[in-house]
Write a protein that binds this DNA or RNA. Structure first.
Lengths: 145, 145, 145, 145
DNA sequence: GTGGTCTAGACCACA
DNA sequence: GTGGTCTAGACCACT
């Protein structure tokens, strides 16, 4: 039932993303959001270079064993937010970073603002928050190694 | 529109929460989550004192024009996470803060960790993050006034 | 609102149970069940001797700040299960232990049977169970000191 | 009587749980708790294998002649305690056993501790308890055959 | 009066 | 098709 390679055996689908996208089915967010996030990160960190072609919807769907509709939806969102651009008949390509990076920064700052608002309303002090943030940063750096 | 105002037309029910709970129907999150969050904040910031009675399920439902089941669900979650305790036939009461506050701190730190992980993976540096956090904190403090 | 000593000041209610009954409002079981259990234990362990008078419903209700109805209900259950007997106009008295003790033993064994059935159905082995029971026994003995 | 059998009168729905779940309406516990318990046992004893799909909420509701909300509530509890995980739009699936089994062991030991505490307070000796446990174990094993 | 459970039926987002 | 949320209204046990 999964969208694996079909029976022809021909489309042996080389891994086009080097396994950098892992879907976490226990994650409560919808799958297409996870795909969007991972592709954004690959674009922003340079794994996918500006003006290089994105993997085709079908290939990526097969590689991740997902419904092509799900990938399609992710690509539409990425185009809408300026991470990629599409040329009819040729495919999708990675945009210049500048716009994308600014978007991401705003998105992250929005999330932080929400969390910090909640914290302040719950009686957590600014200094406690700063400590928490430092702990998170070091944790995140350590994990990255 | 209100849930079960009686036929007199005179809406008796004194506001038991002083209008501190506002439901945002544009918010994509389910209503019961919004109720949970607001009540948590009221408990943590001391607006609801330990061992004082929570508004009854039915009263709060009327006040917010919601179905009692929705409030019930929120109360059960709050009991499960240690914010309130319930005596059958008597009502629900605010718990001691200690456990609740710890839970909240962990919850907030978990959110921050997620956001910061995403940021680092997207090429945002630790120093940029610290600046963003400072902006958020001052914004949050200003709004509080 | 609580059923404390009334305004006369006369019924200064000496503690008739030496504080051996503590109601746990966070316990999800109804209060009258807790009262029944505690009184059963006081009878079975000899704190209340056979044929000695039980505290009056009113006194016990005041002492525990409970509604007399709640105590009444507990006494009825205790009489029904043979822990106490009532003489009209004189009050309630502790029964001989034999019958009561047998009842309790059956009750406990019934509970154990249920838990053990569940355990076996969930793939816990008999030996694991024996180990768990030993841990529980030592824990219970230590706490008793 | 069944929930939403269609008008044809031909009850299609093949039994998805092989009749392993029987609701006892005489049981004082709520139905959803009974469902939770039965499903936990089926998962823990291997009747439902890890990563295999759980019956859909609607199907199980029809099969047991219950309201889908009741099943939904049970599934949410099972997800919360780590027995199953859910993918929106696809269904619920059995989790790896490890976490679930640990939870169950703790739950059972907690029950035993309570029963044994009560027993000790009622003057039942440790040795009597051990004998009772042995009787229960053999009874439980015999019934299993 | 209180909270807790259950049914019935609706609508939504996701795959 | 799936699960998730919400409303409406019923009944129960407990205080």
């Amino acid at each position: 039932m999964a969208y694996k390679n079909d029976a022809t055996g021909i489309t042996e689908g080389r891994e086009v993303t080097n396994g950098m996208i892992l879907i976490d089915y226990k994650d409560r967010r919808p799958i297409y959001e996870q795909v969007i996030e991972k592709l954004q990160q690959m674009i922003l960190c340079g794994a996918l270079e500006p003006h290089s072609p994105m993997p085709s919807v079908r290939n990526l769907a097969m590689e991740l064993s997902l419904n092509p509709n799900t990938i399609q939806r992710a690509y539409q969102a990425l185009e809408h937010t300026g991470y990629i651009y599409t040329i009819k008949g040729k495919g999708s390509f990675v945009s210049e970073l500048s716009a994308a990076a600014d978007n991401k920064r705003r998105e992250i700052e929005g999330e932080l603002q929400k969390s910090i608002d909640k914290a302040m309303l719950s009686g957590i002090t600014a200094d406690e928050l700063r400590q928490m943030v430092e702990r998170c940063i070091t944790a995140s750096e350590r994990e990255k190694l």
